[in-house]
Simulated assay, not measured.
Amino acid sequence: MGKESEYSLRRTRVEIAGFVFLTFLGYLIIGLSLAVLPVFIHQTLGYNTIVAGGVISLQYVMTFLVRGYSGSIVDRKGPKPAVLQGMGTFALSGLLLALASMFTGNGFICLVLIAITRLVTGFAEGMIGASPVNWAMLKVGEKHTATAISFNGIASYGALAIGAPLGVVLQKWIGLSGLGGLIVLISAVGFVISMRKTAIKGDRKSQRHSFLKVLQKVSPYGICLALGGIGFGTISTFITLYFEYLHWENGALSLTVFGVVFILCRVFFSGMIDKYGGLWVSTISLAFEAAGLLILWLAKDPVWAMAGAGVTGLGFSLVFPALGVEAVKLASPSNKGSALAGYALFIDVSLGVTGPLIGAVASQFGMLNIFLFSMLLVFSGLIICYSIQMRTRVPEAA
């Protein structure tokens, strides 16, 4: 019986991986241009860093706006149409990127086309972000929600980690137009794979609620996620600047340490969510994340700073899936897609405000205090998460 159960679990994981591979392809596309375009806008087109940053941020604004629409599509028609729309729109972004490369001599037209490309990419990300994982959840059952969300996170973060440096290397060899062509090719592969998969729809017999009502339900868990995301956002945005400020070397290696520990924790410890519950795991995870940021703030040498980044990655790794499991439980079967999309909105907001917020802290209170500030926000998320856990225990005990 044990062997049968083990085989069943392994088969379930393989099925989940087959769906979240579509997430991997989507975020690989996003990663290919992520590190290339800011440099291209600043150095090749000659615009300042504010313009470059603003154009890049258009993607996240569009993703934020599309999340609700994506969740509605998943709930009404199933995840397959949303994934197909996402892959088709990614292909369009590749064509626009290739077109933009033809107007390098006219900086304004090129910039406008790149801005449109970012908006189109943001739409595609909004459609692909929570759709494959919903597809996987419908296929393998709600009891495997934690595994599905964990695998989806590994796929997205892993794809970005591969895509960003790969895009920089490829752009030197094939140029921006070649990168656009590669994006079209990867999108076509994702589209074909999606077409070959069986369409699945959720339970539409149960009562459906508006996206705003679902968003209100999941918001306590989303707020905890957003506060936890500040720690990740601070490291990903400011760790290299922090190392330069202290005249330390290998600041980028801290990101690698964070990413490696993050993925390993997802691989080996995601089962704890099913065993101990999402609220307990997220409370412990936020405690580890806060401890990692504290180590970073107190670090007197780069080795300790990297250790702090690793502990932060260990802590943040399970926050999204652990809280996500609890958030999805609150929704009716016909609102699961909207619940996951609404919950994911909070990490979009978190990562969107981290840059200006922590930048303001650095200018007002000094670069040395950015990780202390982040730690306090993560700790406040821990307090909220613990209070939710205590409130839910009372009815259970009764």
Rank of each mutant, 00 (worst) to 15 (best):
E4N: 12
A17C: 09
G18Q: 01
F24Y: 13
Y27I: 03
Y27T: 00
V39A: 10
I50H: 12
V51C: 07
I56G: 00
Q59T: 08
G71S: 00
G71P: 01
V83H: 03
G86F: 09
L95G: 15
A100G: 00
S101L: 07
T104Q: 15
G107D: 11
F108L: 13
I109S: 05
I109Q: 07
V112T: 06
L119Y: 06
L119F: 09
V120N: 02
P132D: 07
N134A: 11
W135C: 00
W135P: 00
M137L: 06
K139S: 14
A155I: 04
S156D: 09
Y157A: 10
G175E: 06
G180Q: 02
F191P: 01
V192D: 07
I193M: 08
K197P: 05
A199H: 14
K205A: 15
S210Y: 07
K217C: 12
Y221S: 05
Y221M: 10
L227D: 04
G228H: 09
I230L: 08
I235M: 09
S236V: 13
S236F: 14
L241Q: 14
E244K: 01
Y245N: 10
H247A: 13
N250S: 13
A252P: 11
S254E: 11
L255R: 08
L255F: 14
T256M: 10
G259W: 01
L264W: 03
I273S: 00
I273G: 02
Y276K: 12
F288Y: 08
D301V: 05
G310A: 11
G313H: 05
L314W: 05
F320Q: 00
A322E: 07
E326Q: 09
V328P: 01
G337K: 02
D348T: 07
A362W: 08
Q364S: 15
L368A: 14
L372M: 11
F373D: 04
L376K: 04
I383V: 15
M390T: 01
R391H: 12
R393A: 15
A397P: 04
